[in-house]
Deep mutational scan, measured.
Amino acid sequence: MASQGTKRSYEQMETDGERQNATEIRASVGKMIDGIGRFYIQMCTELKLSDYEGRLIQNSLTIERMVLSAFDERRNKYLEEHPSAGKDPKKTGGPIYKRVDRKWMRELVLYDKEEIRRIWRQANNGDDATAGLTHMMIWHSNLNDTTYQRTRALVRTGMDPRMCSLMQGSTLPRRSGAAGAAVKGVGTMVMELIRMIKRGINDRNFWRGENGRKTRSAYERMCNILKGKFQTAAQRAMMDQVRESRNPGNAEIEDLIFLARSALILRGSVAHKSCLPACVYGPAVASGYDFEKEGYSLVGIDPFKLLQNSQVYSLIRPNENPAHKSQLVWMACNSAAFEDLRVLSFIRGTKVSPRGKLSTRGVQIASNENMDAMESSTLELRSRYWAIRTRSGGNTNQQRASAGQISVQPAFSVQRNLPFDKPTIMAAFTGNTEGRTSDMRAEIIRMMEGAKPEEMSFQGRGVFELSDERAANPIVPSFDMSNEGSYFFGDNAEEYDN
C-alpha cells in the first residue's frame, strides 16, 4: 500500500510504541512475548500442572481467558453494579484439565481477579502490559475465525453469508486497541457500523446529549479505520460520505453494504499476525530463551520457528480426527482463516481442507461434555516452508469459486491468482447506482469489472525454506488448481455463540 510509510507498523501498534527502528520493534515485541511466557509459567505453578498438562491447549485457553477477564475493567465495573446470582464479580476462573488415573478430569478453578492481575503485572515488570493482553485477544479471535462461520451475524446486519472472507476479527472485544483495529476485516468494521446506525434509528437519543457526542466521535473513528483499509480513492470518498452524514440511517447502511461487497474484489488491507497460545510461549521462556534479547516478529519467520520446536497437546472428542484438529489450530496460529487453501497447503506441506470436510468441533470443551471418553493427542503445528504475512489485500483475480465463501483475504505475501467468483459478486451490483453516491458507485463498479483474471497478485513473492531466515531465496510455489480455494466452501461450520 502506498501510504505504508505514514502508518505505524503493526509491531508498533502491538507494543504501543512511538516510531521505533526494526531492532527496537523486535525487542519490544519480544518483551511482550516474554511477559506472556513468564505469566503462563507462574500460572502453571499456581495450578500445580504437570509439564504435559501445561502444554494442553484447553488449559492455555482457560488461563488466557482468566487474565483477560481480570483486566476487563468495563465488564468488571458492570458486574459490580449489576450483581447477578451466583456470579462473584471479583473472581474469575474456568475449567482446568488434569490427568488422573490414566483419565482426563475437569476441575473448575476460581481465583481472585486481583490475584491474577498481581501475577500478570509481576510477570511483566510491574506494568499492565496491555500489548500482551491484546495479543491474547487476537489469538482467540484468530481461533474463532478458523472455527466458526459468522453466517447468522452477517444475515442479521443485512449482509450476504458468502462475504465471510471479510469477517476477520469479528469476535475481537471493543477494547483491543490499535492492534485489534489493524486485524479487523472490512466486513467486521461494516458490521460494527451498521449495528451502531441501527441503534440510532431505533433509539432517538442515541446521537443526542453528552453521551451522543461520545457516540458520534466513536462512529467517526470507526469510519476512519474502515476508510484506511480501502485502497481505492472511490471507496475512500464513499467512506467520507458515510462519516460526514448528519443523521446516519438506511442510506448509510446501503452504502456500507455496497462497500463491503466491493471489497470482495477491490480488497481492503487487513493486517495478519501470528499470535500463538500462551502454552507455546511459556515452555520456550522456561527453556531459557530470551525473546527480548533475541527479538521477535509476528509477521516473519519467528512464529514458524517457534511452532517448529513446540509440543502442544489437545483434548480430542471420541469421533474427532486429531489431524483435522491440528489443521484448525495451525490455521489459527498463522492467522489464515480466509487465505486461499492452495497457498496454505503449499506452505504447510500437507493438504489443507475446507472447514466442512474437517471432523472436528471447536477447541474448547463445553462444561456439560462427558470427560470419560476424552483422549488427548499432539497437535501437528509444523510447516514445510515459511512466508511473510501481508497486510495488503493483493490485486484481484477471477477463479472458480464456491457456493460458500466467494473470495479470499490473503494472509501471506505469496504470488498467486486470487480466487473470487466474479459473476456471483457482480450480480449483486445491478441497477442500484442512484442517489448521492452514484458517481462513486459507478466508478467502483467500473474498477471491479476491469479486474483481470490473468493478473498475478504479489508478483514474484515466494515462500522460503525454514533454514532461509533472511528470506534470501524465494520459492514461487505451484498450486494444484483442481483443489478448492475457499475454506468455508459450501460450508456447515458451527455458528459462533458468545
Rank of each mutant, 00 (worst) to 15 (best):
M1G: 10
A2H: 00
S3P: 00
S3W: 11
T6H: 02
R8W: 08
R8M: 01
R8N: 00
T15W: 02
E18D: 15
E18P: 13
R19T: 07
Q20L: 05
T23C: 10
E24N: 04
I25D: 10
V29W: 06
G30A: 14
G30T: 08
G30K: 06
K31H: 08
M32I: 05
M32F: 04
M32T: 11
D34Y: 11
D34F: 13
G35L: 07
I36M: 14
G37Q: 07
G37H: 03
F39T: 06
I41H: 01
M43I: 10
M43R: 05
C44K: 15
T45R: 10
E46L: 08
E46W: 07
E46M: 13
L47W: 06
K48F: 07
S50F: 09
L56S: 10
S60Q: 07
L61F: 11
T62S: 15
I63S: 02
V67T: 06
V67R: 01
S69R: 03
A70H: 02
F71M: 07
D72F: 06
N76G: 03
K77A: 12
Y78T: 02
E80Y: 13
E81H: 10
H82R: 11
P83Q: 15
G86D: 01
G86C: 03
K87T: 05
K87E: 10
K91E: 07
T92P: 05
Y97F: 14
K98Q: 14
W104K: 04
R106D: 06
Y111H: 11
D112Q: 08
E115H: 12
E115P: 05
R118K: 15
R118S: 04
R118D: 02
R118L: 11
R118H: 09
I119M: 12
I119E: 07
R121A: 12
R121S: 14
Q122D: 00
A123S: 15
N124K: 08
N124R: 04
N125S: 13
N125Q: 11
D128G: 10
T130H: 15
T130Q: 12
A131M: 09
G132V: 07
G132I: 14
G132E: 04
L133Q: 06
T134S: 15
M136F: 13
M137T: 11
W139C: 10
N142Y: 09
L143K: 08
L143Y: 05
N144C: 13
D145R: 05
T146F: 02
T147R: 05
T147F: 06
Q149N: 06
T151A: 14
T151Q: 06
R152L: 02
A153G: 11
R156H: 11
T157K: 02
T157M: 08
G158P: 01
M159A: 02
M159H: 03
P161Y: 00
P161W: 00
P161H: 02
R162W: 08
M163N: 00
S165R: 00
S165F: 02
L166I: 14
Q168K: 07
Q168W: 03
L172K: 09
R174F: 03
R174S: 07
R175G: 02
R175L: 01
A178E: 02
A181T: 02
A181C: 07
A181K: 03
K184G: 11
G185V: 06
G187F: 02
G187W: 07
T188H: 04
V190L: 02
V190A: 15
M191G: 04
E192H: 01
I194M: 12
R195N: 04
R195E: 10
R195D: 03
K198H: 05
R199M: 12
I201N: 11
N202Y: 14
R204F: 11
R204V: 04
W207D: 05
R208F: 01
G209M: 06
G209K: 08
E210I: 01
N211V: 13
K214P: 00
K214I: 13
S217D: 00
A218F: 10
Y219F: 11
Y219M: 12
R221G: 07
M222S: 14
M222L: 03
I225K: 01
I225A: 01
F230R: 02
F230K: 07
Q231S: 09
Q241T: 05
Q241N: 06
E244P: 10
S245C: 10
R246E: 02
P248F: 02
G249I: 08
G249W: 11
A251S: 06
A251I: 13
L256S: 07
L256M: 15
I257Y: 08
R261T: 05
S262Q: 12
L264M: 15
I265F: 01
L266M: 11
S269Q: 09
A271R: 07
A271C: 07
A271P: 06
H272K: 06
K273F: 05
S274M: 09
L276I: 11
L276A: 09
Y281E: 13
A284Y: 14
V285K: 11
Y289L: 14
D290T: 09
E292C: 14
E292N: 03
G295V: 11
G295F: 09
Y296C: 11
L298C: 07
G300Q: 05
I301K: 12
P303Y: 03
P303E: 05
K305M: 07
Q311F: 01
Q311K: 12
V312C: 15
V312E: 08
I316L: 15
E320Q: 07
N321D: 08
N321C: 09
P322S: 11
A323G: 12
K325M: 10
K325L: 03
K325C: 03
V329W: 09
V329R: 03
V329S: 03
V329Y: 05
W330M: 08
W330V: 08
M331T: 07
A332E: 10
C333L: 04
N334P: 01
S335H: 06
E339D: 15
L341K: 10
R342S: 13
L344M: 14
F346S: 10
I347P: 00
T350N: 05
T350I: 05
K351P: 10
V352D: 05
V352S: 11
G356F: 09
K357I: 10
L358K: 09
L358F: 10
S359V: 14
S359E: 01
G362T: 06
V363F: 08
Q364D: 00
A366M: 08
S367V: 04
E369P: 13
N370D: 13
M371E: 00
D372H: 11
A373K: 12
E375D: 14
S377T: 14
S377A: 11
T378Y: 07
E380G: 12
L381Q: 14
R382N: 15
R382W: 07
R384W: 04
W386D: 02
W386N: 03
A387Y: 10
I388C: 07
R389N: 09
R391H: 01
R391Y: 06
G394K: 03
G394M: 04
N397I: 12
N397T: 08
S402H: 15
A403Y: 03
A403G: 04
I406K: 08
Q409D: 00
A411I: 00
F412I: 13
F412V: 07
S413D: 00
V414M: 15
Q415I: 00
R416S: 08
D421C: 13
D421P: 00
D421W: 05
D421H: 15
D421Q: 10
K422S: 12
P423N: 09
P423Y: 04
T424D: 15
I425F: 02
A427D: 01
A427G: 15
G431D: 00
G431I: 13
N432I: 07
T433I: 15
E434D: 03
G435P: 08
R436H: 13
R436I: 06
S438H: 15
S438V: 11
D439E: 07
M440I: 06
R441I: 11
A442N: 13
E443N: 15
R446Q: 06
M447G: 06
M448I: 14
M448P: 03
E449W: 00
E454A: 15
M456P: 00
Q459C: 01
Q459R: 15
R461C: 04
V463C: 14
V463S: 10
V463W: 04
L466R: 00
E469S: 11
R470E: 00
A471I: 01
A471E: 06
A472L: 00
N473E: 00
P474G: 00
P474Q: 02
F479W: 04
M481F: 10
M481H: 08
S482R: 05
N483A: 01
G485P: 00
S486A: 02
D491Q: 01
A493P: 09
Y496H: 06
Y496V: 13
